[in-house]
Amino acid sequence: MRHPTAEQSLALLYADHHGWLRGWLQRKLGDAADAADLAQDTFLRLLCAPEHTPERQSAWQLREARAYLTVVAKRLMVNLHRRRSLEAAYLEALAQLPEAAAPSPEQRLLILETLNELDALLDALPAKVRSAFLLAQLEGLGYAEIAARLAVSERSVKRYMVQAMAHCILLAP
């Protein structure tokens, strides 16, 4: 077959490299279940890649298939770690709440989903920009107070606000 379709070459990629990728992930993650999940997710990403993705347009004829797969898998690993650390911090914060103020199980899930969406948006921001933005959005603090807390000028705080919001606007679906 000289010109396989995208689906056919994906199936070939899967057959040739799925086992190897799972092993690679397991060495990285030290967890068989996580490795199996992420290996599966990696191929799912390829399957769902937007039309304009160059690799998809070339019908997944990859020169360095394993290198490409690890790039995608690494991104998923980072996401997994981000989500795990968010969940850990979330549980910690919940445990600190007085009982009567604790949200119901349904609300916990909704809150976690919202947190995860916002966390992904904020991910690449520098720490101070992120902190300033969060203090304004979640605590309702004024610029002067945020400036004092973070030991930066009020003008910087103002700039951080715009930077963070613009960043979120660009990334938001």
């Binding site: 600190q96 809150i111 919202t114």
Partner: peptide
């Protein structure tokens, strides 16, 4: 985005999102 933040309880959301 601002609305999403406003709907979150600060006592939980701040430590969760600012965990760095």
């Amino acid at each position: 985005i601002a609305g999403s933040f406003a709907g979150l309880p600060g006592a939980i959301a701040l430590p969760a999102l600012d965990r760095r």
